[in-house]
Each structure stands twice: as C-alpha cells, then as structure tokens.
C-alpha cells in the first residue's frame, strides 16, 4: 500500500527508470481520451443529422414550421413539439428563476448560520430525485390536484378575460402544458439556486459593506450590488437550467399529454420533442417517420447547443470580470 508514497530520496535516485517514454505514453493516453470525448459528441450530432436527412430533404424548411403530424398521410411537421418544448420550458423558467434567486438570498443573507447547510442540502436533493419519480408524482398526485383545485379556478376566473382568456380555457383534465411547466420548474430550481448561492456569497465583502455603510436595506444590496455584480453567472445558470428543461424526457412524457395539437390554452395537452421521440420511436415503421423523429432529436440538440453557448459566454464574461484567466 505504501509503495506508491512519494518518497523523495527513493524517487530522486531513479529518474532513468521512468523516463520520457512513460511520459509520452501518459500524454498520448490522456490526449486520446480527450479526442474520444470530442468524437463521441461529434458522432452523436452527425448521426442525428444523418438520420434526419430524409426528413429535411423531403420537407425542407416546412419541417420546422409544419403543424401536421400525420403518420397515415406521411406528413410531418415539428412545430407542435417545438412549441410544447419551448412553452413548458418558459413556464419552468418563470417559476424557477424568481424562486431560485429568493432561495439564494435566503441562504446567503437571511437564514441563521446553523440552518444554512441543511437547507442548502435539502434544496439540492430536489436535483437528486430521478426524473421518472417526478413524472409519476406528477401524473398520480399533482395532475389530479391541478384538475380538482387549480385548473377550474383558473379557467373560471381568467377563462373569459379579454387577452389572457384563451390561455386558461379548456376542460380541467390536469395534464397539460401548465402542469408540465410547473413540474419542470421544480426540477430546475436546484440548478439555478445552487449556482446563485455560490456566486452571491462570492461577492466581495467590501462591496456589500460599503453599501451597508451608505444605509442600504437588504433588498437594495441584493438588487443594486449583488445581482448586477453576479449578473453573468446568474444568467449563465439560468441558461443551464433552461438546457435541462429543454431535454427533459420522462417527467414531461407523464404529464404533458402527448397530443400533437396546437392549442393556445396552457391547460391543454401538447407534445415535446423528447416526449415525442420516447413515445413514438420504437413504432416508427416507415423510413420517413423514423427520419422525422431523428430530425426532431437533431433540432433539440441544436437548440440545446445554442442555449449552452450563450450560457458559456455569459460565464466567461463573469470569470474575466473576477480576474480569473481561464
């Protein structure tokens, strides 16, 4: 066991044994592993694009804008899954962002010191719960709750108002874009709040202290010092959360309703890209059908790529701000 301990005298006396050869080998192994990672991602992207080429060739741009998903007639359009994915992710962010920032504020400023650790762990446990359990809980517990208590109230009070009425109309079936958006929001909270908490506590004390010296309230410190200072990191974290919401499969499959219908109402079911692939891939029996599903996967991949690039750029700016060189 102790044979590998770095004993300076022993090691210094045998420099020839482990020479440039072993070093070269080690470097090749690590570089090879790095290339493998690159290859894998490239492979995934290329195989998606390749598998989807028939669909793109057949429909061209109309694949992205088409509303039909007609298996019998062989007409496929990605608009409804894209719409469902974007709407549920938007609802998720609308819930997760304020809540996460609130939690971060609570944990860095308000909570008594001895509670901060346990509460932080508890919030992060939300990220540890497997997504299929979110789906099951969503379908069997949360959706009936929404159908019985929340959705009738929403459609009753807002269903016939002028602008937002169409958003809240429809039968209270419980599953739909709103429920899926809320479940996704809960899943995303820990991602944003943990980063926010870290960067909030990394704000240099002198900055906060000078604000206090000038007579700022807690809220003013948050809104005028902390948030502007950590803006890039927080936005980066939001985009990371968005990336997670966009790609989530199992939770959404359970509670979104798998309906290839375009509907303005948030109470109605819809479809998401990941849920469509999960539901339909094993039974896609024509080449065009299979190719359309893979093309959907490719589109999701592209969207995730764009979102993550923005996140990375934001984080890069913050790092530069804080003086880190890499």
């Amino acid at each position: 066991m102790n044979a590998t301990a770095a004993d300076p005298a022993e090691l210094a006396s045998s420099p020839r044994k482990s020479g440039a050869g072993a070093d070269r080998a080690f470097q090749l192994i690590t570089a090879g592993a790095a290339w493998l990672v690159l290859l894998l991602l490239g492979g995934v992207a290329v195989s998606m694009a390749w598998g989807g080429r028939l669909a793109f060739k057949t429909f061209g741009w109309h694949f992205v804008t088409g509303k039909d998903w007609d298996v019998v007639g062989g007409k496929f359009g990605a608009f409804v899954p894209i719409y469902g994915t974007l709407v549920t992710s938007a609802i998720a962010l609308m819930i997760a962002v304020p809540v996460s920032i609130g939690i971060a504020l609570f944990l860095t400023d308000i909570a008594p010191r001895w509670t901060r650790g346990p509460i932080a762990i508890a919030i992060e446990l939300l990220a540890a719960i497997p997504s299929i359990i979110y789906g099951m809980w969503g379908l069997f517990v949360f959706a009936p709750f929404m159908a019985a208590h929340v959705e009738p109230w929403l459609s009753g009070h807002f269903g016939n108002k002028p602008l937002i009425g169409p958003l809240f109309s429809g039968p209270p079936i419980g599953i739909g874009m709103l429920t899926a958006g809320i479940v996704l929001g809960i899943m995303v909270i820990p991602f944003i709040s943990s980063v926010a908490r870290e960067v909030f506590s990394a704000v240099p004390a002198p900055l906060k202290e000078s604000a206090v010296a000038l007579g700022s309230t807690r809220w003013e410190i948050l809104s005028r010092v902390t948030l502007p200072y950590t803006r890039s990191a927080v936005i980066g974290a939001i985009f990371l959360g968005l990336g997670r919401a966009l790609g989530e499969t199992m939770a959404v499959t359970f509670v979104l309703g798998n309906a290839h219908d375009l509907s303005a109402s948030l109470l109605m079911p819809s479809n998401s890209i990941a849920a469509a692939i999960a539901n339909e891939f094993t039974e896609a029996d024509t080449d065009l059908y299979r190719s359309s599903l893979i093309a959907l996967g490719f589109l999701l991949f592209v969207v995730t790529f764009v979102v993550l690039t923005i996140a990375k750029l934001m984080l890069l700016r913050l790092n530069r701000q804080l003086g880190r060189t890499h």
Binding site: D68, N258, P269
Partner: peptide, 12 residues
C-alpha cells in the same frame, strides 16, 4: 396504427 387525432390526449 397512428392517425392524425383531431382532439384528445395520448396515452402510451
């Protein structure tokens, strides 16, 4: 085996 359903939700 799949049709363009005019309405409703889909169960697996």
């Amino acid at each position: 085996k799949t049709v363009n359903w005019p309405t409703g939700v889909g169960g697996k």
